[in-house]
Amino acid sequence: MKRIKLIIPVLMLSLFFTGLFLVQSDKAMASANLYWGSQGNEVVTLQQTLNTQGYWCGEADGIFGPKTYAAVIKFQRAKGLDVDGIVGPNTKAALGLNDNKTATTITPSRDGSSIYRGRTLTMTATAYCSCYQCNYPYYGAPSYLGLPLGKGIIAVDPKVIPMGSRLYVEGYGEGIAADQGGAIKGNRLDLCFASHQQALNYGIKTVKVTILD
């Protein structure tokens, strides 16, 4: 009987501290920063919230990529926050994000298709990827803005298109002006693809480019 009496309080204390640990873990996860490469439900909520507040980042797919990054940058600039593309406590507070709040995705047109408004340029587009052949002698380096090279990264002439601008390129989709190149001057831009073969297949095209922000 004495052993049973001793075991019960020990079990109760163990359950108490286990519950406390889980609560603290949940709080820590909820307060974690979101940044390029983050994935999951928190990113979905972030994307939905950005879309709802007019900072369109495309479909809420739960992947923090170039569209979400560009929308976060635009939001931070508009709200006078540190412009770093990281969704930390201050940016979350400004967005009104919390554990119990979800947002509703909005569509920019009645039929669900995207409407792209902004200054439109006719430009010559080439293609590249993150491989050695495309990036020598800077193989392994990130884009000019420090973002990983991949689909959605676009090299521009900053005298024509400001760095960090969100773009819509005809036949390519949305991306962010996050890179530069020695041959990218004037009305030229270089579109990053996921593979070298995709870049080769794209070739050289004349496209319409809309500067979204």
Rank of each mutant, 00 (worst) to 15 (best):
M1Q: 08
P9S: 05
S14Y: 15
F17L: 06
L22Q: 12
S25Y: 11
S25G: 06
N33Y: 14
W36Q: 06
S38Q: 07
G40S: 07
N41W: 03
T45I: 08
T45K: 15
L46S: 14
Q47C: 07
T52C: 05
G54A: 12
G54L: 09
W56E: 04
C57E: 02
E59Y: 10
I63C: 03
G65A: 06
A70N: 07
K74T: 04
Q76E: 14
R77E: 15
R77Q: 15
A78M: 06
A78P: 02
I86Y: 15
I86N: 15
G88W: 11
A94T: 11
G96Y: 10
N100L: 06
T105P: 09
I106F: 14
P108F: 07
P108E: 05
I115D: 15
R117G: 09
R117W: 13
T124N: 13
T126C: 01
C129W: 01
C131G: 00
Y132G: 10
C134G: 01
C134S: 06
Y136I: 03
Y138A: 10
G146F: 15
V156D: 00
V156Y: 03
V156A: 02
P158F: 02
E174A: 07
G175L: 01
I176E: 05
A177K: 08
G182C: 13
K185D: 04
G186I: 10
L212D: 12
